[in-house]
Design a binder for these strands. Structure first.
Length: 223
DNA sequence: CCAGACGTTGTT
DNA sequence: GTCTGG
DNA sequence: CCAGACGTTGTT
DNA sequence: GTCTGG
């Protein structure tokens, strides 16, 4: 996991829900893939600031930004010890905003069936992420990664990993750049309660008129 | 010591 | 930058 | 992560 | 099978 997710909400609703300031335009998408720019929230120590970052962490020491293609996920286990993640874990944690994510289940006939995971209350939510700044010539590149953990009772039938989803009351703790309580931070990186989540199969994940945001929303509303 | 990797998921 | 493997 | 290509010749 | 692009 977590290779794909979505962001179908309109920005003002997200802004109200997550309480951040933003100066960028973002567009809703039903299927966000690695290497694309995704909506993140960080803390400057005072306020929550939102902006886009490229999905695929490029550590500050990287010589080649292509390394980001291998850094789309970070396992929660040992995240504070891995050379690629330890710096970001200590100082650069972020939220990654979403309203659903996808996992593929391998069926007996060999085909893969995509499933969409959402909250039962259909509200947006946030993955725990890390971010970095990398100097690309003159232009700094901001990139990020999504942290994964073991599955809960809803996701385990489809996949053996799931993204770390944070509770609203732990956002500030996670984002605070001055928080260096490693054990406490790591204690947040656990599976989200299955009781609050829901899933349903989706027909296909290719770009098509049937897979735009209105289609996804109509599926949500018909449940 | 230097050189080279630094990651995850899933194996048609 | 920092760790691992040789 | 999945989906889709996996090639060359010859050039708008 | 393996790499690339999204």
């Amino acid at each position: 996991m977590c290779g794909r997710f979505s962001l179908a909400e309109d920005i003002s609703a997200l802004q109200q829900y997550f309480d951040f300031e933003i100066s960028e335009e973002i567009s809703p998408r039903f299927n966000i893939a690695p290497s694309q720019r995704i909506l993140t929230v960080i803390s400057d120590g005072q306020k929550r600031r939102a902006g886009t970052m490229k999905w695929g962490l490029v550590p500050f020491w990287a010589k080649d930004e292509k390394i980001g293609y291998k850094m789309i996920n970070a396992r929660a286990e040992g995240i504070d010890e891995k050379p690629s993640f330890k710096h970001a874990f200590k100082r650069r944690r972020c939220l990654i905003l979403t309203d659903g994510f996808y996992e593929w289940k391998k069926q007996e006939d060999g085909n893969k069936q995509p499933y969409r995971f959402i909250m039962k209350d259909k509200k947006p939510f946030a993955f725990a992420g890390l971010w970095e700044t990398w100097k690309k010539g003159e232009q700094p590149l901001h990139s990020c990664t999504i942290i994964t953990t073991t599955p809960n009772e809803v996701t385990e039938d489809v996949h053996d990993r799931m993204p770390v989803i944070l509770h609203q009351d732990s956002y500030d703790l996670w984002l605070n750049p001055k928080n260096d309580d490693t054990e406490h931070l790591k204690s947040l990186l656990v599976p989200y309660p299955a009781e609050e989540m829901d899933l349903y199969p989706v027909s296909t994940m290719v770009n098509s008129p049937k897979n735009d945001i209105s289609y996804i929303l109509s599926q949500l509303n018909s449940k």
